[in-house]
Simulated assay, not measured.
Amino acid sequence: MRSEVDGGPVSSEALQGIVWQVWTAYLGGSPPAEPLPVAAYVEPFDVIAGVAIAGAWHGHVVLRCRVDGAAAMAGAMLEIPTGSVRLDDIVDACGELMNIIAGNVKSLLPQPSIVALPQVVLGEADVVWPGSAAACELRTGFDEWAVLLSVLELERGLR
């Protein structure tokens, strides 16, 4: 796993630790020790799940992956065969994973901070968070699927 950006209250090492705990506890496996080839992270992702955090710190925690990878995670989390996973299962599982990940990220942030409900977007879309910049980014994966996790911090003047 590798970070392209690392700054602010959340380090790539801390995010990697959170991912390891979540993958182990909820998906029954651990993330890969090394990121997948760079090309796996440049292809357009068609599942984007994000959670906003507000309070003493303002920003978002975002997961991006391909729908096949999201289906594999949903199958593992819901203990059903990947081929039986429906789009609703993907939305539910990705939303719940982001709740868990964002809650763990929140524990590293200045307090008080609150976590909003997750939003999950399916399909290739240009999802943007205006005024936000990557504070931490982690390239990881689940099985053979690339997963990109980002912690985006809102610029101070926009809070």
Rank of each mutant, 00 (worst) to 15 (best):
G83C: 10
S84E: 15
S84H: 14
V85R: 01
V85D: 00
V85L: 07
R86E: 15
R86T: 14
R86S: 15
L87S: 14
L87V: 13
D88A: 15
D88R: 11
D88T: 13
D89S: 08
D89G: 08
I90K: 06
I90Y: 06
I90R: 02
I90M: 05
V91S: 11
V91P: 05
V91R: 09
D92G: 12
D92T: 08
D92S: 12
D92P: 06
D92E: 14
A93M: 07
C94I: 05
C94L: 12
G95Q: 03
E96L: 04
E96I: 01
L97D: 07
L97P: 00
M98W: 08
N99I: 03
N99Q: 09
N99M: 09
N99G: 08
I100R: 07
I100S: 02
I101D: 06
I101R: 04
I101M: 05
A102V: 01
A102P: 05
G103M: 07
G103P: 02
N104W: 10
V105W: 01
K106Y: 08
K106D: 12
K106L: 12
K106G: 10
S107K: 14
S107Y: 11
L108R: 03
L108Q: 09
L109C: 05
L109A: 04
P110F: 01
P110K: 02
Q111E: 13
Q111K: 13
S113C: 11
I114L: 12
